[in-house]
């Protein structure tokens, strides 16, 4: 690489870091501005002298029942949806990657159409259906759509991973005297696990991010997830949108994402790129 290129890459790398992290830094900084300063107006990136709030906004937001409840809902709903979606997707992806059967193309096409589906077009009829079934404003009422909409991504990611597994090894193990269950458990599961895990992370991100279903299919804190709760968030002063309090809530809701990204960066990148590219 020439020096010119190298400088270009370094500048590019710095640009990426600024691009990605500046807004995050901003929302963190905003979360430390005091609510009084926000009311009178406190422009600027950093809290001004005397306009800082310390950890006040965080303790306020954590003390807020609605917010705590929303976090609980989001974690619960997202985890259950992820778990179920990945199980179902694993079955389907295994069939797609390993078996010959009629209807495979139908599955892939359906998945594709659903991945492109305009979610808003569904919420009206879904609301109508859910209230008939009595699952409006419940965890289940959100888990079902989350599963359906994460299945395409999970199926793609998993089938891409599964195609890379040397399935012959299973037979080889059986020849060596392992039962087929043992062969599956000792050979295939460890090879498939990273793929399943990756699909799970991507599914979780989707469920955690969802807003349209979250505001349309809930109406109380019984099931309202974080994004909807943030958009409806009410501080102590109902007439004044609590920007810095909201920012603290936003930061709290981002912590799980950052933790997951820090821990599993490689797997997520692999998962996002696996569908598009061979290998």
């Amino acid at each position: 690489m020439s020096t010119k290129n190298r400088i270009g890459v370094v500048i590019g790398a710095v640009l990426i870091l600024v691009w990605c992290l500046l807004p995050v830094a901003w929302i963190i900084s905003l979360s430390f501005k005091s609510q009084e300063a926000i009311t009178t107006g406190s422009p600027g990136f950093l809290p001004r002298d005397g306009g800082g709030a310390g950890w006040q906004n965080y303790s306020d937001v954590i003390a807020d029942d609605q917010f705590r409840r929303a976090i609980f809902n989001s974690i619960g709903i997202s985890l259950i949806a992820t778990l179920l979606s990945v199980i179902i997707a694993t079955l389907a992806a295994y069939a797609i990657a390993r078996l010959e059967f009629k209807g495979k193309k139908f599955v892939l096409t359906t998945a594709l159409i659903i991945a492109m589906f305009p979610v808003v077009a569904l919420v009206g009829p879904l609301f109508d259906m859910w209230r008939t079934f009595g699952i409006y404003d419940t965890w289940l009422g959100l888990i079902i759509p989350y599963m359906s909409f994460t299945l395409p991504l999970a199926i793609w990611t998993l089938s891409a991973f599964f195609r890379e597994i040397p399935w012959e090894m299973e037979q080889a193990a059986q020849v060596d005297g392992a039962t087929s269950w043992q062969a599956f458990r000792k050979v295939i599961v460890p090879l498939a696990a990273p793929g399943v895990f990756t699909a799970a992370i991507l599914t979780f991100f989707f469920a955690w991010n969802d807003f349209v279903f979250g505001i349309s299919l809930t109406s109380t804190e019984a099931a309202r997830p974080i994004p909807a709760a943030l958009s409806f968030f009410v501080g102590n002063d109902p007439f004044n949108r609590p920007a810095s309090l909201l920012a603290a809530g936003a930061v709290v809701s981002t912590i799980p994402i950052i933790v997951i990204v820090l821990l599993f960066q490689r797997k997520i990148v692999a998962g996002l790129t696996s569908g598009a590219v061979k290998g």
Partner: peptide, 13 residues
């Protein structure tokens, strides 16, 4: 503007 935005303008710096 809403009920909150103009509150700060009553006693500005």
């Amino acid at each position: 503007s809403n009920e909150g935005t103009s509150l700060g303008q009553m006693f500005p710096e």
